[in-house]
Write a protein that binds this DNA or RNA. Sequence first.
DNA 1: TTCTGTATAATTGTATACAATTATACAATA
DNA 2: TATTGTATAATTGTATACAATTATACAGAA
Lengths: 217, 217
Amino acid sequence: MTEFKSISLATQVFEKLEEDIITGVYPRGEILTELKLVEQLGVSRTPVREALRRLEQERLIAESGKGSVVLGITLEDLVDLMVIRERIEGLAAYYATKNLTAEGREELQHISELQDFYYEKRDLDNLRKMDDKFHYAIYNLTGRPILRDTLIPLHRKTQRYRKISIEDKDRLDNSIREHKAICDAILSGKADLASELITNHIQLAKKNMIERCYQHG
Amino acid sequence: MTEFKSISLATQVFEKLEEDIITGVYPRGEILTELKLVEQLGVSRTPVREALRRLEQERLIAESGKGSVVLGITLEDLVDLMVIRERIEGLAAYYATKNLTAEGREELQHISELQDFYYEKRDLDNLRKMDDKFHYAIYNLTGRPILRDTLIPLHRKTQRYRKISIEDKDRLDNSIREHKAICDAILSGKADLASELITNHIQLAKKNMIERCYQHG
DNA sequence: TTCTGTATAATTGTATACAATTATACAATA
DNA sequence: TATTGTATAATTGTATACAATTATACAGAA
């Protein structure tokens, strides 16, 4: 049986605001007041407040005397996000390889096939989602909560700029090739190789993102 | 004039619970229900709930159907916390050196002197607090929010095990010496040296913590 | 003008009532 | 005994009233 779970309004509000802040719908500097969000989202203050406290904890907003100010992700932040990932994501790939389970193997293969499927269709939106799924799968397969919970927000916060990056066809092609190579390394138990490949992958992604985004911005 | 700021109950509850979970007052696996906390802390459910949502975001607790289950920090977590710090804290020291301000310089000198003061008095509790202050000062001096906000929780979560570690006199002595050397490097503008020294510092701290804590636990 | 005080409005902080959900105990049934 | 259904209790989810705080505008004094 499929697992059902009613998602609380507080969580829905959090996820919507998180997405909108990360993708820039709410620009840096904008003031979010509880009342405004209550009217805008049609829920009471309680779930709004809980969402705001969680966003604060993620450093996506900050209290500002009057309302919460949106911090969002700057280009300077992007550089740091990628530099940190560059330094620790190899570790995640290493552990994922060492702790690979049968289900993990299947999951990675499934993601790899889906990636091909969306690539054939030139479906950029879903390809970006596959990038999420691919990296999240690795984080989860590590079996190391600290590593996973450190990396997930770092990856998620790059979302806005990744979107811009994969509009570059060359980069998209390379990215998919790199994913495949990493996948192969993990599935064949080559932990050190997986680590090295993912570090290179992030380095290349960083380079492309920064170049393109500094032009756009 | 000194800056006053009334701290909300929600924040006080959060900080107390965070500390108690990290230091093990609430052991891993314990169930926290809102009602229990309301009675225990003498506040209403609203601030308790906000605190719980923030703790969830920090992955110190998790929902469990019935109440929130305490996750806390395991020894395996400790290893990962230190490995990650080992890989990125050098970057923080580098930026702190490059972006050093007059106030930053004063702050570091002040912390260094206070450290000597408490060392003379063999005041372990305050010495641990100086370790916090020293590392937080560096994180803040980077001027890089992502780096700071990634490192602060990683450092804070090691608290319980650091306490055990500095009961070892040799380790305490070395730790203080290492702090001094890092401080000197930053103050004299040697960014690469500061980076290298702090990486070694964390590596040594990690080694000691793990050895001692695996005995204790 | 610039500063200071004060009233007012805007906003957040807290408590609590009630609704909805979920777990639990226990009886009834196969 | 094992399983299912149902009532009950425990718990969380949400809305809202009221309190406290904070920002703002504006008048009056230096």
